Simulated scan of single mutants.
Amino acid sequence: MRALLYKEWREHRWVLLAMLLLLALGQAVALRAAGIMGSPMVAYQKIVAIMVPLMALVLANRLVVREYMGRTQLFLETLPVSRTQVLAVKWLLGCALLLLAMGACLGATLLLARHKVTLTPHYVAMVAIRSASFALFSYALAFAIGLTGRYRYVIWSMLAVCTMAANAVGQLAIQNWAPFYLAQESMVYERLVLPLSEVLVTCGIAAALVVATFALALSAEGSLVVALSRRMRSRENPPSPSASPQ
C-alpha cells in the first residue's frame, strides 16, 4: 500500500498542487466578490458548485483514465496487492483529496464570516453535509465514467443531452434535482431544516455508482477495463468524409 501511495504521489503531485493553487485562487476571488451577495458563505457555495465537478474530473482523469490509457497499470500488477485493493486505494485517495480540499475552503470561509453572519454548529453541519454529499456524488460519477476509457466522451455527451432534454420537458427543473439542489444557493441560506431526502437520494446514487465502478473494474479479472481503455484501431475509426471509395 505504501508503494502504491508513493507511486500516486510521485506521478500526480504537480497536478494536485496546481489544482490546489487554482482552488485557492478561486476561493480568494469568490470571497472578494461575496461582499455584494449578502454573505461570505455564498463564496463557498460558488466554489462547491463550480470547483467540485472540475476537481472530480481532474482527479478521475489522473487516477483512472491516465493510468489505463497510459498502460501504467502494468506497474500495479507487480505489487503484492489485489485489484480490489488497488481500486479501493485509488477511489478513497481521490475522494479524500476532494473532501479535504473542500473542508479547507469551508474552514477559510467560516473564519472570514465569523464576525459577519451568525454561525451555529447546526448551520455549519448542514452546509458541510450538503457540500460533502454533492462532492461524493460528483467524484463517484467522474470515477465510474473514467473507467469506460475511450467511451467516456460518448457517455458524458449522452448524459448532457438527456439532462437537457429532461430539464426542457420535465416538470422539475434541473436545479431542483436531488444532487444539484444540494449545491444551490439555498445551501448557505437555509438554516433550520436539512433537506434529508435530497441528501439520501444523492448518497444513494453515489453508492450505486461505487458498486457499478467495482463491478466494471473487477469483471473478467480486470480485462474489460483494459479493453475499454485501448485506443481505437484504424478499422474501428469512422471513415473520413473526404476518403474516396476504392
Rank of each mutant, 00 (worst) to 15 (best):
I145M: 05
I145H: 04
G146D: 03
G146S: 04
L147R: 02
L147Q: 07
T148K: 01
G149K: 08
G149Y: 09
G149T: 09
R150C: 03
R150H: 10
Y151W: 14
R152A: 14
R152K: 11
Y153D: 11
Y153G: 13
Y153K: 12
Y153V: 11
Y153F: 14
Y153L: 14
V154L: 15
V154N: 07
V154G: 15
V154P: 03
I155P: 07
I155K: 12
I155N: 11
W156Y: 15
W156P: 02
S157N: 06
S157G: 15
L159M: 10
L159G: 11
V161Q: 01
V161S: 01
V161A: 09
C162T: 07
C162P: 00
C162S: 13
T163E: 00
T163P: 03
M164F: 08
M164H: 00
M164E: 00
A165D: 00
A165E: 01
A165Q: 03
A165Y: 04
A166H: 00
A166S: 09
A166G: 12
N167W: 12
N167T: 11
N167C: 06
N167M: 05
A168P: 05
A168V: 09
A168L: 15
A168E: 06
V169T: 13
G170P: 06
G170L: 05
G170A: 07
G170M: 05
Q171C: 04
Q171S: 15
Q171E: 14
Q171G: 15
L172N: 08
L172G: 00
A173C: 01
I174H: 07
Q175C: 05
Q175V: 12
N176F: 13
N176W: 12
N176A: 14
W177I: 06
W177F: 11
A178N: 10
P179T: 02
P179F: 07
F180H: 11
F180G: 10
Y181E: 08
Y181N: 08
Y181C: 05
L182W: 09
L182P: 10
L182C: 09
A183D: 01
A183N: 06
A183Q: 08
A183M: 12
Q184K: 13
E185R: 14
E185S: 14
S186P: 00
S186R: 13
